[in-house]
Simulated assay, not measured.
Amino acid sequence: MKATIYHNPRCSKSRNSLNLLKEKSLDFEIVEYLKTPLNAAEIQTLLTQLGIKAEQLIRKSEAIYKEHYKGKELNENEWIEAMVKHPKLIERPIVVYKNKAVIGRPLEKVEELLA
């Protein structure tokens, strides 16, 4: 079974998850979501695989969040549209394997997914 990592090469946590996939000798695909942004349907699929609400996938430390979204009450679709418009808002890394996904923080979550 092939794994997928939604990856930002500038992020150390994302690089650690990528290295773990390489160490496990798994067949995997790398999606650099800042270069190839996700559409709303792809984000919705990830949310289902993660088992979380859209707001839980938002990086609240990002300047974009603080400037445009902090303190606002958005519904599921509005949060998804915010991530489509601003991919930097998406938590990273996300690893998908066997139709389940985890946010790779801490790295142990990825190890449990791959076990």
Rank of each mutant, 00 (worst) to 15 (best):
residue 3 A to E: 04
residue 91 E to G: 13
residue 92 R to H: 07
residue 64 I to L: 15
residue 40 A to K: 10
residue 100 K to Q: 10
residue 56 Q to H: 13
residue 74 L to F: 02
residue 3 A to I: 08
residue 41 A to D: 10
residue 6 Y to N: 00
residue 51 G to H: 08
residue 65 Y to P: 05
residue 20 L to P: 00
residue 109 K to Y: 11
residue 101 A to E: 10
residue 70 K to P: 00
residue 114 L to S: 10
residue 51 G to Q: 12
residue 91 E to W: 13
residue 34 L to A: 05
residue 79 W to K: 09
residue 55 E to M: 02
residue 90 I to A: 01
residue 56 Q to R: 08
residue 71 G to W: 08
residue 104 G to T: 02
residue 79 W to Q: 10
residue 110 V to E: 00
residue 104 G to Y: 09
residue 96 V to F: 08
residue 38 L to E: 06
residue 45 T to S: 04
residue 50 L to P: 03
residue 103 I to F: 10
residue 89 L to V: 13
residue 26 L to I: 01
residue 43 I to W: 03
residue 29 E to G: 03
residue 91 E to F: 10
residue 12 S to G: 13
residue 68 H to F: 07
residue 11 C to D: 12
residue 67 E to W: 12
residue 3 A to T: 02
residue 110 V to D: 08
residue 76 E to T: 07
residue 27 D to I: 09
residue 87 P to S: 08
residue 104 G to I: 01
residue 28 F to S: 01
residue 84 V to L: 13
residue 60 K to T: 13
residue 7 H to E: 11
residue 23 E to H: 15
residue 114 L to V: 00
residue 35 K to H: 14
residue 38 L to S: 03
residue 76 E to C: 07
residue 74 L to Y: 10
residue 103 I to K: 12
residue 47 L to M: 03
residue 106 P to W: 01
residue 99 N to Y: 08
residue 40 A to V: 07
residue 72 K to A: 03
residue 41 A to G: 00
residue 106 P to I: 07
residue 45 T to G: 03
residue 30 I to E: 07
residue 77 N to C: 03
residue 105 R to N: 04
residue 107 L to P: 05
residue 58 I to C: 14
residue 75 N to I: 03
